[in-house]
Design a protein around this nucleic acid. Sequence first.
DNA 1: AGTTTTAGTGAACGGCGTAAAGCTTACGGT
DNA 2: ACCGTAAGCTTTACGCCGTTCACTAAAACT
Lengths: 261, 261
Amino acid sequence: MPAEASAPTGDGTQAQAGPGAAAAPGRRERVREATLREIKDNARRRLAAEGPPGVSLRAIARDMGMTAPGLYRYFSGLDDLLNAVRADLFHELSAAVAGAAGPLPADDTDGRILASLRAFRSWALAHRAEFSLLFATPAPQDAPDPRVLEAGREFAASFFSLFDRLLAEGRIPLPADEEIGPELRDRLDAFAAKTGFTIDNASYGALRVLMSCWVRLYGLVSMEVAEHMTPIMGDMEPLFEAELQDILSPAGVEYRASHRP
Amino acid sequence: MPAEASAPTGDGTQAQAGPGAAAAPGRRERVREATLREIKDNARRRLAAEGPPGVSLRAIARDMGMTAPGLYRYFSGLDDLLNAVRADLFHELSAAVAGAAGPLPADDTDGRILASLRAFRSWALAHRAEFSLLFATPAPQDAPDPRVLEAGREFAASFFSLFDRLLAEGRIPLPADEEIGPELRDRLDAFAAKTGFTIDNASYGALRVLMSCWVRLYGLVSMEVAEHMTPIMGDMEPLFEAELQDILSPAGVEYRASHRP
DNA sequence: AGTTTTAGTGAACGGCGTAAAGCTTACGGT
DNA sequence: ACCGTAAGCTTTACGCCGTTCACTAAAACT
């Protein structure tokens, strides 16, 4: 006795009434998509609440009022689900970083960069478990998932595009190419090749500065998320802001305090 | 039919011959200590081979020819075992860092620092799973173990002592205290208080530089261990060496290439 | 000698991922 | 309008896991 019995047009076989108002995606696929979302949402709830080890198929199924093997219609296993969540999280993180720059004027490059880097930190702190799922050291044997790799690339690109603008403005005091050793140049070539940069528009010096910025930001935020220093120095925000200043000055970005603490 | 049957002196009850040569610590405690080591060694073997999730009491017990509940005589549970391993690993890492500086002359501060930081990276790369166990983001709810905290402090101290020497030599071009904001000064005060530094011998500027160095080194090594960049830029050593140079120059350390690649 | 402490086993409980088989229901083709 | 078929889901089952409890055998102490 489902509630659908009170539908205006129909009784008897609703198979007839169903496909009449069919939208493009088809009803079947819509409910499937909804279930898929529900599974991932529940996975995230547990992830946020209990960390990565708290995510289990059985628990998720229980929360949804079904049994674990049913989830195999949607994911090929726990790893597959986790990878799907990872990909979603990368997209979300990218959006958070890009979104923070959105409200600022397009020509305020410095402001956009500052806002984006702060947004990265904020997202990480507001989603510790998610952050650690994204950036944790993978187990020795498990191969990376292509969806996650792609989403990671997109995330990286959302950072690089900020940098591109900076380069275009030509304000970065770049180290001369000759100061960079030949082995490192090789590696930066490889990096540029796989990320779409060309050495034409981004010199070795520029890539060098970019890497340096990213490493420092990543180290800082990772430490804060993992709370390695928190027990001995408390609130890390002052250190973050001070480092932000130091990180960005070699890239020619003028530091500004955040007006909304 | 064991090989021991061919032993020269013995047959009958060997219980009589045993306790004669008892040493100070007591025989009982020795074998207990040995078993304890064996458990931790087996835990490490699995850790290195399969990463943190591969460490299980049942598997370890199986490897040792006993059953899982028996291990509860030595550890109060899996977490307890993992924490013991963590503490051991911190000691080992500290020793590796300190040991790398050992062979160098005591007055070669720059050389000792370079060797120590390179040793940190080398250890991390040679023990990826162990490194990630030490520095992974903890699950939201689990409280830190005091033994691990203490060992972590010791590890930090092994780094700080290098820095102390640098300070004593007065070669660091320190930022003036006034350049450091009041909030950050508060945090650095807290940091100094809990680590044994005093603001007398280490100015705010010095602590600021120390933190900056550590954050950059940590970020760099973490990224390399997690292999975030490896797929797109291959061997990270050139970047590490270049960063090492940049990291240490604000601390007044003169970079030297490593003679043994 | 007997008593107590220790190391270890065996069985059991509940939770986990996952494979196989079966049942219901809705869809698609005719 | 009907029927084959596939999708969604459950039941059952296997083997792994951490952990508890009751128990035995041996060592240590008195």
